[in-house]
Computed example of a mutant assay.
Amino acid sequence: MVTAARRWELWSTEACVIVTEPSMLDQAVDLSKAVCHDVEMACSRFRDDSELMILRGQLADGREISDVLAAIVRSALAAAEMTDGDVDPALGGVLLGLGYDRDFALLDEPQSPGPEAQGSIRVTTVAPSWTRIGLAGNRLKVPECLLLDFGAIGKALAADWAAHRISSTLGCGSMVGLGGDIATAGEAPPEGWVVLVQDLPDDPSGCVRLNSGYAVATSSTQKRRWSHSGRQVHHIIDPHTGLPAEAFWRTVTVAAKSCAEANTISTACVVRGRRAPSWLRDLGVPARLVDSAGRVSTCGGWPPDEMAGQS
């Protein structure tokens, strides 16, 4: 089976679409871009004209929201509940306070990753906040003091939705990658969907085969880093401290039946640090973890079709 692929820059990362019918590639890319645009216009906190930002300040009494934004909020709340709040969609204010106030490509060039010096960063208010978000049908209610951030779950959902949109509309197999979030739908190639698992070029690498309909997501403390108050910070926040999570893991990669699920679990593992493996074993989820020293561990029956050894 012949496949065709196209890559382009999106949301300060690389987007990729692969289809099993090369003649449908242009249409598949258009469908993927349309899905991503819908997600961006619904929930981006970096666009003044997104639905989320237009409604900011109006949600304290509750407002009706679009189906797209409602689906994103619903998934984000489900992720928070699943992780006991370790993945919290109401941390936009914390990220804003750390200087993540615009698209990542516009932030200062980050320095090489180094030891975290979080003790010098002050956070004035830390409180579990996702439970203060109310969603009944499409009516969203959010206290004025909270700023929502759907960056992680929004990207994962966009990958899921785009892959399924392509497959259902065009009738071909598809794989959609948005940075570390990779979703598949429809008939896979005979060899499966082959995915390279590696964060930075010098990191340990491996390849896995994904069966049709499965997804993989990687959360990293090495990327999306910037300088704030003279210190290096990253974008995965521990809701219990209001600070970037300790970089116990360089990366966590999880395979699941959707990108949204895989991303939720991988992000929570970064927050949980050394407690992550036992949680993963309880979940029975296949995962690959690379610690701060570059050592690789796997659990949950990490896909046995791994094709390349760790290097």
Rank of each mutant, 00 (worst) to 15 (best):
N263E: 15
N263K: 11
N263Q: 14
N263H: 10
T264D: 15
T264P: 08
T264L: 14
T264N: 10
T264W: 05
I265S: 04
I265H: 02
I265W: 03
I265D: 05
I265Y: 02
I265N: 04
I265G: 03
S266P: 02
S266Q: 06
S266I: 04
T267M: 00
T267K: 00
T267N: 05
T267S: 11
T267V: 03
T267R: 04
T267C: 05
A268N: 11
C269H: 13
C269N: 01
C269L: 06
C269Y: 00
C269F: 01
C269P: 01
C269Q: 00
V270E: 11
V270K: 10
V271P: 04
V271A: 05
R272L: 10
R272M: 13
R272Y: 09
R272W: 13
G273Y: 12
G273P: 08
G273E: 12
G273N: 10
R274N: 11
R274K: 10
R274A: 15
R274C: 13
R274M: 02
R274D: 10
R274W: 01
R274I: 11
R274S: 15
R274P: 08
R275Y: 09
R275T: 09
R275V: 03
R275F: 12
A276T: 00
A276M: 01
A276G: 06
A276K: 02
P277L: 00
P277S: 00
P277I: 00
S278K: 00
S278D: 06
S278Y: 11
S278A: 01
S278H: 03
W279F: 10
W279H: 08
W279A: 06
L280A: 03
L280S: 01
R281M: 14
R281W: 11
R281D: 15
R281N: 15
D282L: 15
D282F: 09
D282Y: 14
D282W: 11
D282G: 04
L283A: 10
L283F: 14
L283C: 13
G284E: 13
G284I: 14
G284A: 09
G284W: 07
G284S: 02
V285K: 00
V285M: 15
V285T: 12
P286T: 04
P286D: 06
A287Y: 13
A287E: 01
A287Q: 12
A287R: 03
A287P: 02
A287K: 00
A287L: 09
A287D: 08
R288A: 07
R288L: 03
R288H: 10
R288K: 07
L289C: 08
L289F: 07
L289P: 02
L289N: 13
L289G: 03
L289D: 02
V290P: 13
V290A: 13
D291F: 04
D291I: 11
D291S: 07
D291R: 14
D291Q: 07
S292P: 07
S292F: 06
S292K: 10
S292R: 06
A293C: 12
A293M: 13
A293V: 02
G294P: 06
G294A: 12
G294Y: 05
G294R: 02
G294K: 04
G294S: 12
R295K: 06
V296P: 02
V296G: 15
S297M: 14
S297Y: 02
S297C: 14
T298R: 06
T298V: 05
T298Y: 07
T298G: 05
T298D: 06
C299K: 05
C299G: 12
C299D: 04
C299V: 14
G300Y: 07
G300W: 13
G301R: 08
G301I: 12
G301C: 07
G301K: 01
G301A: 02
